[in-house]
């Protein structure tokens, strides 16, 4: 008997409770007071953000907390002007990696506060190496989105 192969539909949903660990938990607690905290490795002197419990290069615990600036420079950026499933907000918006002053690791976040209608004009305001400053939300609950976005300055 000639048959056409049938399809079985599948779907898996699984719950998890991921532990942040004490270091990340404190990092976010400090956000409530508009402080971006990192940990400094005593061996290589790098300041890691978000604060890490160990330096993966030197393989030692990092317990020395330091505050880094909420200003920095744009390492790279992208204008998202299309929709996809699970998107953090409605397009258009800009995602970038920010190198905060005093930190040795970038922070992925949004770049905002600029008109996004035209790529040419956006590119004049948002550029690699350009300076940005965090715009904090009024109500902060200890979350990466307590920073609304990073706004270009100068």
């Amino acid at each position: 008997m000639a048959v056409k192969s049938r399809i079985v539909k599948g779907f898996i949903s699984l719950p998890y409770n991921w532990s942040m660990g004490p270091t990340t938990t404190r990092f976010y607690e400090e956000f409530k007071n508009k402080r971006i905290m990192g940990t400094r490795c005593e061996k290589c002197n790098r300041v890691l953000i978000p604060a890490r419990s160990f330096c993966s290069g030197c393989f030692v615990e990092t317990t020395n907390w330091v505050q880094v600036s909420d200003e920095g420079t744009i390492r790279t950026w992208v204008l998202i002007n299309f929709s996809y499933e699970g998107q953090p907000m409605a397009p258009p918006y800009i995602t970038g990696i920010i190198d905060l002053d005093g930190a040795d690791v970038g922070l992925p976040h949004f770049v905002g506060g600029v008109e996004l209608d035209d790529l040419e004009t956006v590119a004049k305001k948002v550029r690699i190496g350009g300076r940005v400053k965090a715009v904090w939300k009024e109500n902060r609950e200890g979350h990466i989105l307590d920073i609304d976005y990073f706004k270009p300055i100068n």
């Binding site: 532990s19 660990g21 270091t23 990340t24 419990s53 160990f54 030692v60």
Partner: peptide, 18 residues
């Protein structure tokens, strides 16, 4: 261990082994 992130957990085990 419930308080540690799973990255931390593995780091501590590896640090001890080293």
């Amino acid at each position: 261990t419930a308080e540690m992130s799973h990255k931390d957990l593995l780091f501590y085990a590896t640090r001890r082994a080293l």
